[in-house]
């Protein structure tokens, strides 16, 4: 009897080990392409363009190559600055518009809050391709093609529904009793917001803003259609490192690493809260 249980426990422990090991293997497998990209960025072109090798003399020269300026071509600094300002301003605009809206949907809800929320989400169901041609025409007629402004406006519109959706779920977590207590204590709207609501939703605000940053930073479709020249962003800069002449693998890897790093770091930091805002907002 006792040896039987011992066997079962032993078997269980073995299965548990194996499953843990499998999780590690899957994790490493999924991460491998990124690891490989980072590794190739530190190689000489000749090493990157040969059969895969793990050991080599690491060099920073490719990073120097991709960040050096070539007159007439989109440079790293320019693309980074464009992306930085477009992402920053559009995210600020999203938050300015979305915070009051989410407040109206969660804390002092309008009567048809469900319909309004549906409307916001339903705009995400309409594929952007259905709007791109009119947007192009309007942008051209307003002289906005190839400007940062057009991308700022469109990225704001792109992220707004998602931000409203997420922020609403964070606002819903504010206990109503706390707000009522503040009201009884005579706190005005401003007092309720600063002393009760904001401290609770602040981490949620940060996570939402971060998600907007990630989506805007990575956006390529609108950038390539409306803004392929002057206000070009990081994704366009990455693709400009693909050349039809000569080897480019190591350089492309360095450029890709530079373009990916900010957002990956941000995502790692905020992963748990972002998920809660996205998933738990819908299902509670």
């Amino acid at each position: 009897m006792s040896s039987d249980t011992g066997l079962v426990v032993g078997q269980k422990r073995w299965t548990s080990w194996a499953l843990g090991l499998l999780a590690w293997a899957v994790g490493l497998l999924f991460f491998f392409p990124i690891f490989w990209m980072v590794l190739n960025g530190f190689k000489e072109e000749i090493d990157a363009n040969s059969s895969p090798q793990l050991f080599f003399d690491p060099t920073l020269d490719r990073y120097r190559d991709v960040t050096s300026e070539t007159p007439g071509l989109l440079g790293f600094k320019e693309a980074f600055a464009n992306s930085f300002w477009i992402v920053l301003i559009s995210t600020i605009l999203v938050m300015i518009l979305a915070v009051p809206a989410a407040y109206s949907l969660a804390i002092r809800p309008v009567r048809k809050w469900r319909d309004v929320l549906f409307f916001f989400i339903s705009t995400k169901f309409l594929p952007i391709v259905g709007a791109i041609l009119p947007l192009w025409i309007i942008a051209r007629d307003l002289d906005l093609l190839n400007t940062r402004t057009v991308l700022i406006i469109l990225y704001t519109a792109m992220n707004l529904p998602l931000a409203v959706w997420m922020l609403r779920s964070f606002f819903m977590e504010v206990p109503r009793e706390l707000i009522e207590a503040a009201q009884i204590d005579g706190a005005g709207l401003r007092g309720q917001l600063t002393s009760v609501v904001m401290p609770i939703v602040a981490p949620g605000l940060a996570a939402t803003a971060l998600l907007c940053v990630i989506f805007a930073w990575n956006e390529f479709f609108l950038a390539v259609q409306l803004n392929p020249v002057d206000g070009s962003t990081m994704p366009i800069w990455v693709t400009s490192n693909v050349s039809t002449r000569g080897n480019f693998l190591a350089k492309l890897s360095a450029a890709s690493t530079l373009a990916t790093l900010p957002v990956v770091l941000a995502g790692w930091v905020a992963q748990k809260r972002m998920i809660r805002g996205l998933a738990m907002g819908a299902i509670k």
Binding site: G27, F30, I214
Partner: peptide
């Protein structure tokens, strides 16, 4: 490790 592919720029 596993969430990283989702954060990577699609172009990259």
């Amino acid at each position: 490790l596993l969430i990283t592919p989702f954060l990577v720029m699609p172009v990259v």
